[in-house]
Structure formats: C-alpha cells, structure tokens
C-alpha cells in the first residue's frame, strides 16, 4: 500500500461524506442524482461481497464497511427520508442502459471464471459509468449544485491518485491489471467531461451569479 492509494481512498471518502452531509444538513436532495447513488450502492455491494470471506487488512475491511454504510445512507436519504425533494423528472437516465452492458462485459471480460471475479469485473465497469445519470441530470436541468461539483472533484482526484498508484505499482512490481487501468481512465474522462461541459455554468458561479 502506498501513500497515493491511501490519499485516494480518503479523498473518495471525503466526496461521499460531503454529499451525505449536504443531504442531512439541508434535508434536500435537489440536483443530486439518486440513480448515480443507487449505481454506487450496486458497485460497492457487488465488489465487497467477499468482505466476510477474504481478509486483506484491518484498514481495507474498515474502509469497505464505511464505504458501504455511507452509500446506503445516501441512497436511503434520497429515496426514503427526503424523497419529497428528489427530482425524479430530471433524474431520467435509464439505469438499465448502464447495468446490462456492464453485466455482459463483466461476464465476458472476466479474467477468471469465478463468481466473485465476475462480480468484481462488473463492479469495475459499473463504477466507471456510474456518474453518467448525474452528468445527464445536470445537463438536463442546466443547473449544478456546488455540492455536486465538490463531489465530482473529489472522485476525479481519487481516480487520479489510483491511476498514479497503479503506475507506481507497475514500475515497482512490474504488473498492472489492464481492466482496472482501462476503466479508471474511462472514469476519469467522464469526470473531465463533466467539468468541460459545465465550464460556462461554473464560471458564472465564480462571478457570484446563479449559485444554486
């Protein structure tokens, strides 16, 4: 484990925490895509199914439990506690368009035909595209919450750290997982695309206009 990975994990955690805090403090989930959070919940559930069977370290086990808990709390906040403020109309991206292709890719591109491995591969692909409903929602409403900007910035940093971590591992140990690196790059491109697309809105915000 290197510092890049740990920094990435904490930044990821920070992003999820900012989102959950925003939901709990404002009791409002306007502008936040419930579908992206639901996809994240699926990602963590499928990836960490080996939580009880495979033990790596105390750090990993605790972080997995925290990740799953925060994501489930976020999903519950959006779909149960504060569902009255959930913008169903604008969160219109069809999740099955992401889940089904990822399931097919997971099944066919898995390196080892083993249940946990297929689930892992599926989760890696789904994680790469899980931000799509959020990006779609922002582009549909033409408004972007500052929380969403912070959240996506954290996720982008997290992915960047992990990519550097994989590069470091490759240089040091001489191997890398193609699947992780390829999907990691795709994921990072989605985040960059979000910022590139919303640059005009973000600039406006900096000038103090149209802050949502």
């Amino acid at each position: 484990m290197d510092i890049l990975q740990i920094f990435g994990d904490y930044i990821h955690l920070l992003g999820m925490f900012i989102l959950l805090m925003k939901l709990c403090l404002t009791r409002n989930c306007g502008g936040i895509s419930g579908k992206t959070q639901l996809l994240n919940a699926i990602v963590f559930t499928t990836r960490y199914m080996n939580l009880t069977t495979t033990y790596a370290s105390l750090y990993i086990t605790i972080m997995k439990i925290i990740y799953i808990s925060i994501t489930y709390c976020t999903v519950l906040s959006i779909f149960l506690f504060f569902r009255k403020t959930y913008d169903r109309e604008r969160d219109a991206f069809r999740m099955e368009l992401l889940i089904l292709p990822c399931a097919v890719l997971g099944l066919f591109l898995t390196e080892y035909l083993d249940t946990m491995e297929v689930f892992w591969t599926f989760s890696v692909f789904l994680e790469a595209v899980s931000i799509v409903p959020q990006v779609y929602m922002v582009s549909k409403s033409k408004q972007v919450e500052s929380t969403v900007v912070s959240y996506i910035s954290c996720l982008g940093l997290y992915r960047g750290c992990y990519l550097m971590h994989w590069l470091y591992t490759y240089l040091k140990l001489g191997f890398f997982r193609k699947m992780s690196v390829a999907t990691g790059i795709i994921q990072l491109i989605f985040y960059c695309d979000f910022f590139a697309r919303n640059l005009p809105i973000l600039k406006q915000k900096n000038n103090g206009k149209g802050f949502e």
């Binding site: 484990m1 990975q5 994990d9 990821h12 080996n50 495979t54 790596a56 370290s57 990993i60 972080m63 997995k64 990740y67 080892y112 491995e117 892992w120 992990y162 591992t169 140990l173 191997f175 997982r177 992780s180």
Partner: peptide, 10 residues
C-alpha cells in the same frame, strides 16, 4: 499474485 494484490484495494 495479481488477484491477491487486488484485495489490497478498495
């Protein structure tokens, strides 16, 4: 091996 290495990641 690579699989066990992957368990060290989140």
């Amino acid at each position: 091996n690579i699989i066990s290495k992957r368990h060290d990641e989140l």
